[in-house]
């Protein structure tokens, strides 16, 4: 199984950024490698998770193939996130941390995406 590289860019008012810390713990425990930057040398992250649409927009321009996930906490953030993501089909997606309107919540969504990315990498190898 190919390792999937993950870059987290979560804005937080909390100094210790608890959501980013929690996501980092969960995703690395489940086999993803965390990256310090979205692009390191010739390698770009397979998956980026952010909670900011402007950051998502910048990252989609900095990378060629990275899957960019805009996560949102509050329903009021959903419309903007979805509107931006729909402008980049195949590159951006949105998911609520715990939105009852979504098919799945953040971690299962990321696990499915990571499995898909790992499969794509295996095919390339």
């Amino acid at each position: 199984m190919q390792k999937v590289n993950l870059f987290l860019s979560i804005d937080s008012r909390e100094k210790n950024n608890p959501i980013q810390m929690a996501l980092h713990q969960v995703m690395t425990h489940l086999g993803c490698d965390a990256m310090e930057q979205v692009v390191q040398g010739d390698m770009e992250a397979d998956i980026v998770v952010t909670n900011d649409t402007a950051t998502a927009l910048r990252l989609v321009k900095e990378t060629e193939k990275t899957a960019i996930v805009i996560m949102y906490l509050y329903p009021k953030e959903r419309e903007e996130a979805k509107a931006v993501a729909e402008r980049f089909p195949g590159r951006m997606s949105t998911v609520g941390i715990c939105d009852p309107n979504d098919d799945m919540s953040l971690v299962p969504f990321l696990l499915r995406l990571a499995a898909q990315k790992a499969k794509e990498k295996e095919v390339k190898v």
Binding site: L57, E79, E80, V84
Partner: peptide, 14 residues
């Protein structure tokens, strides 16, 4: 996002 308000962000961002 230069100067865009919430409605304009939905409409224009990206």
């Amino acid at each position: 996002q230069l100067q865009l308000g919430p409605d304009a962000r939905k409409e224009w961002l990206g």
